[in-house]
Design a protein around this nucleic acid. Structure first.
Lengths: 202, 202, 202, 202
DNA sequence: GATGAATGAGGATTCATTCAT
DNA sequence: GATGAATGAATCCTCATTCAT
């Protein structure tokens, strides 16, 4: 049965990979709106029609390109809960958020575009996500809960809530960078985590 | 010779206003991608060409429409620093952020589009902003500083940094709403402020 | 309110007319499949985009082009029932069918295409036809009924059925012309009418 | 070197058969326009390229598929002239036309497409038809002539002409079905034959 | 004989912008 | 000031056909 995204040959595999790579690069470089199918195909060194042997449409291609880059970092993040109790909470959180940040660097343009473009959002919603794969909010919440049980975090905060807060904060920090003089993301993440940990109240 | 900004007669004024209103409504209703110049003109009840008597291009129109809605809330926000010392810090912050949230409700699609669309971003950067008008980060920082001096906030936090944190958090909360079960924005803002005030550390 | 097919200016009118003429000519010359929007626009001497100011899509344009040519002949045909009793039945019928044939000459490629192309069929079904305008089957049936009452036609045939038969026959004669040696349409129509009038039974 | 018509091995034979069957089914089900080479190959369970081992192009495949279905009915029709004198003329004609109608049911979309698409028409014209095989007009004319000689049909009609008339009528009835209330084809064929036999004149 | 990946010209359609009236 | 017709480049996508394996 012929399906899109079915590359059985070795050549097909490499074409598919080239398309994904080209798509990721272009979205990163020129944004979603300017990333045309023509440009992707050209950058991948294939004909425009080839794109449609591998993906049903533009949105699916770009989404796949994004998700593909997700994978390794998500994988790595899964080990976070195991680090509970070891090292400073602050460092663990900062490390984790920084990993996510690296992932988002390529993902962000697409995330933003999804919020503007109905097509992309639809592609995302109809994409079959691996239900096994742990998602960042859950993993982070698990970690926070573990630290809470170890007494290294307040008892009266909801771990899930705190996790969402951290992630939303990271998103905001990346998507809407504070005006210059801008500090490197690494630094602003660290400061934000510190502030959140100690609180503003005296 | 006046090419744009043709609103010198009374008729011109009302046309301009109609365009701005239509643009704001459309961006809010159908998103930036779907907001075409055609649709705006039609919604404003004017011819397509008329749009270009008042604005040099689409981006400028949408930007103007957004800024216009900014104004009253920015105005109102300016009074925040004066509330330092009165009422609970938490309530003051929540009130302030909620006002901003209302403003953003119409503004957000445009902000997001700006992050995807270079054209829009360029229009924003070349827009002549009133240098007198206080911007939210500054106002919020001023307020925080005042509270700090009153001893109602930690001494060792940078008010500017905290202000940015709060705003970024609001942006993230609005742009990337946490997954269901979703709580009303008002509530999630309140929880976030509380969490930030007390901190996560025991 | 902006609508397609709304040409208020004189210039608009003439562009619309040019498009219709070009479309009719092309469909006649190269068939529906080969009639591209590009070709129509070029033949009409306008840009391709202009086409879409006047018609929502290709199918609507071609349909409109066909219907426009309908009109005058349909009009003329309406007088057929009044001719009942005058002249030979055979001649009246032949005249009528020949008129229809002239109309069909341009219409036929489109009729055929409608039977192959779902899009066109959809356009036809959603087209707003003038309910006042008499349609050929009805007019023809009216005429036959009148002749029947004058005793010039068998009493035991259903006029509607006979009308349909005549029209279907005309359609078949035009669409699937008998193999060579081919006679001119005018002649084959005449022979068919004669055959049908006298019947095959001795 | 054999380029097409590669059906020399047994495997080749069955592939070819599968392609023909798939093509016939698709044309019947979704129409000619929607019948893509891709769809045919997929329905036949073979690769796209395989199609071109058996047929030089799409048109040839579809034409072959159509002709193949012709065969058995054409065969059966050949016996019609032998029925002259037996049974009612009306019944013989109705039976014959109904057989043809069944054949046309699958053939019609293609016939119609041929009238719209020059490519297909060209394929038909260049197809090598079996010169032995009797074609419907001839067979029907033979039958009519036989009945004529038996005195069961008017002497003054040209059998060939009458045969063409009947066939054209059938085509029209199938291709351009009269508007609702639509009667089953079987019935409308019968009525048409009756009308034609007795004639319209009193 | 069969595969299926690749091709690439060509299709319909959109839309910000210009300009004669 | 306003109109609205016209523009035309650009977009995503289709599909019959070829060819290396």
């Amino acid at each position: 049965m012929l399906r899109h995204d079915a590359a059985v040959t070795q050549r097909g595999q490499s074409t598919r990979a080239a398309l994904l790579a080209a798509a990721a690069r272009l979205v990163h470089d020129v944004g979603y709106t300017q990333t045309t199918t023509r440009a992707v195909a050209q950058a991948a060194g294939v004909a425009e029609g080839t794109l449609y042997r591998h993906f049903p449409d533009k949105a699916s291609l770009l989404l796949a390109a994004a998700l593909e880059q997700h994978a390794p970092i998500i994988e790595q993040m899964a080990q976070l809960p195991g680090r509970a109790g070891a090292g400073a909470v602050r460092d663990n959180l900062v490390d984790c958020l920084e990993q996510l940040a690296r992932m988002r660097e390529t993902l962000l343009p697409l995330e933003l575009a999804m919020l503007s473009d109905p097509d992309l959002a639809a592609a995302r919603d109809s994409a079959v996500l691996d239900p096994e794969r742990p998602d960042p909010p859950t993993v982070l919440a698990d970690y926070l809960r573990a630290e809470q049980q170890l007494g290294r975090l307040r008892q009266d905060v909801d771990p899930t809530e705190a996790a969402v807060l951290l992630l939303v904060l990271l998103f905001g920090l990346m998507a809407a960078p504070p005006p210059p003089p801008s500090v490197p993301l690494r630094l602003s993440v660290r400061r934000a985590v510190e502030l959140l940990l100690m609180g503003l109240t005296p």
